[in-house]
Amino acid sequence: MAKIKISKENFHSPDDVDFIIKLAAVGSTLFFLIGLGLSATLYSDDIGVENNDWSIGVCLLVISLLILTYLFFSKKTPLTTKWAGATIVVFFSASYLFTNSVISPYIFTPLSWQLKLTGLVIGIGSNIWWMLYAAKNIHKIFYDPELRATLFKEEDNIFVYKNGIHQTIIENKLKRHYFPHPMLWIILIPLQPFSFFIHKIIINSSGLSVFSIFLSAISLPLSLMFNGLIVSLILIYFYYPSILKKTTGKEVHVI
């Protein structure tokens, strides 16, 4: 098997990682603020329902910024861990925005309990299913010797993971979807402008319920995507490298 030529230029420099952490702080703050804005104003202002959903977002934002602050100033944390942690924090903030949009309408809007239960089962159930699907894909790669050797290239004293190679393996080798099926996007995304049109027509009789249902629907593909990415990256950056470290004594480095 061909060896990767390893040099200092292959790896992320401290300056690169610091920039990624700063970018992650800005990106995650924006995602959380948008989500907080929806939580704090959408339901209480439009339908008069007071809720504390926004407080969850505040807590998650503070925790995320504390993690990024620690990664930025920590001298002992490996650069690979810093890079991975910052990436996951950004995806987590995006997950909060879209997953909250999927679930919250069925908690705070004045819908029947049957519709609320249906929406929650679909929203939560589909996300759990997709996260398990993503985990299964990485599991298949790791426990197939040939695919694992492609995912984690073994060098003399380390393993090397090239960012994004797992997507190529999943799509080209496993012939499975890395992102939610395109048909889901084709069906749901065009509903966004239509939802505003419907909202204006029947707002007097249904309050915000119809708009919230459509908001939940168009957020579902993005919710699935980011939650799947989080699971995949946690497994690739942390879980399976820890197994390789334990069994071979070699660490995984990201290039």
Rank of each mutant, 00 (worst) to 15 (best):
I170R: 00
I202G: 11
S112L: 10
F238W: 14
L191T: 14
T80E: 13
M1T: 06
L42R: 01
Y70G: 04
V49H: 11
T168D: 15
I122T: 09
T109Y: 08
K153E: 05
L244Y: 15
N127A: 14
K140F: 03
G37Y: 10
N227C: 05
A2H: 07
I6Y: 10
D45M: 13
L36K: 03
L120G: 07
L61T: 04
G125Y: 12
K116L: 12
I20K: 04
F92H: 07
D53Q: 06
I107Q: 10
A24V: 10
G48D: 11
T41G: 10
F108Q: 01
P145I: 00
E155R: 00
I21G: 02
F73H: 03
T81F: 05
Y43K: 01
L147C: 04
K22E: 12
I189H: 12
Y70A: 05
K246H: 14
C59A: 04
P190S: 14
P193T: 13
L184V: 14
L222Y: 07
E50L: 12
S205D: 15
T81M: 05
Y43T: 08
L65N: 04
I63K: 02
I6H: 08
T99D: 06
H166C: 12
L229R: 00
A86H: 02
K5N: 13
I213R: 01
E154I: 08
I170Y: 05
Y240E: 10
S93V: 08
N163M: 15
I187A: 14
D144H: 03
F226H: 04
V121Y: 14
L61H: 04
F238A: 09
I122A: 13
F214Y: 09
F98G: 01
I198M: 15
P241R: 10
K245E: 14
T248K: 14
K200T: 11
P14V: 15
E50K: 12
L71V: 02
S223H: 03
F142T: 00
T168F: 11
I170G: 01
F152Q: 01
N157C: 03
N10I: 12
V102E: 04
L132V: 07
S216C: 04
L61W: 08
S39F: 05
F197Y: 15
E251P: 02
Y143M: 03
L215G: 02
L38G: 01
L66F: 08
L68T: 00
S74D: 05
S212R: 02
G164E: 15
V254L: 11
I103M: 09
F179G: 04
S223G: 10
N172H: 13
F91R: 00
S209A: 13
